[in-house]
Design a protein around this nucleic acid. Sequence first.
DNA 1: AGCTGAATGTCGAGG
DNA 2: CCTCGACGTTCAGCT
Lengths: 219, 219
Amino acid sequence: MRLVIARCRVDYRGRLTAHLPSATRLILLKADGSVSIHADDRAYKPLNWMSPPCTIEEAPGVWRVCNPAGEQLVIELEEILHDSRHELGTDPGLTKDGVEAHLQELLADNPHALEDGLRLLQREYPTAIGPVDLLCRDAMGRTVAVEVKRVAELDGVEQLSRYLELLNRDPLLAPVRGILAARQFRPQARVLALDRGITCVAVDYEALRGLDDPSSRLF
Amino acid sequence: MRLVIARCRVDYRGRLTAHLPSATRLILLKADGSVSIHADDRAYKPLNWMSPPCTIEEAPGVWRVCNPAGEQLVIELEEILHDSRHELGTDPGLTKDGVEAHLQELLADNPHALEDGLRLLQREYPTAIGPVDLLCRDAMGRTVAVEVKRVAELDGVEQLSRYLELLNRDPLLAPVRGILAARQFRPQARVLALDRGITCVAVDYEALRGLDDPSSRLF
DNA sequence: AGCTGAATGTCGAGG
DNA sequence: CCTCGACGTTCAGCT
């Protein structure tokens, strides 16, 4: 990793055109070949960047970064204030917990948390337009399609609606109703779901993780 | 801006839970108060970060970054290899030249590029659920709603479908058919559009820009 | 390699 | 403040 603090001007020509006038910035060159230009704000987002694979051509005062698609990032260096290199090695990487995949897993193990008497038929039940997260049967023996989201938005309702339309064409499953399960609901999604006869169930992730039997885990 | 290269472990507890085992990384502290942890890969994206507003509590060997929502980023510093500060000043910012809004503009000027005899009635035609990109009339005098996308995906078809349903309730406009115009089509979007009786038209941006009369431009 | 859906998306406009 | 849609989205997972 190379860290350069420099007064510079930057031009990007690619999917769009962008220009940065002269100012002092951080130029971050990573071992993966990426280049990013940071100001002292905008949180972690750089002003401009080039993702790998790309080649860097270093002429005195001008760095030209090109990628195979023909996009170009041209950095004109007016004054270099700092320049250091550091060996970081490969990173062991990030372990995440609490995303949609994990939520789906917990609900597959505890469908009754969505509704009393709900039993899992199949997880990732395949259809022509994609897999249904959870296919279940309720206490009355009726088929239920469950779509799991971290945050339920309009898209999620549309998606579940498409699944329901398709599943209801299958005489072995019909009639099928829908449950949209999420940690958080956008009001518009709630309204549209109601209009479509889809049940919204707010999921408490922490409580659900508590429900999951710890003794059944090996770690 | 403060640049720290250090061997560290990181824990995040917030919207989800994440952990980074011990490794050497860049810790980037910006003047806006943000903190981001970078490995030597993943292009410009940090492994973990905290956006402002947040407070940094520096104890020896442990930095605790907290935001008002109660999210926490805990950095355990095992060895500091580099630590430097730099005055950058405020950045004049980025000037962009968009490609996307342009597409709608070009099609508004050249509706015949979508279909022979197509004429523009109104751009951004307002409806209760949002503006229709282009409202047109075809060679047969029939109303046509055009949705413009850079890349047409499923939600673009859904969006146009909702518009069509609404527009067809207006006796002055009905019957209204739909055209989905895009530079690129996802296969599923094409299938769903066909099923809904929506016409897909692939748009060649470069050619369209060529169509646009250069003499009518001042630059 | 191409396509699809998720994301601590981020970002900006509009109510 | 929240909601919604676009993005040079990026990214991982799967066909």
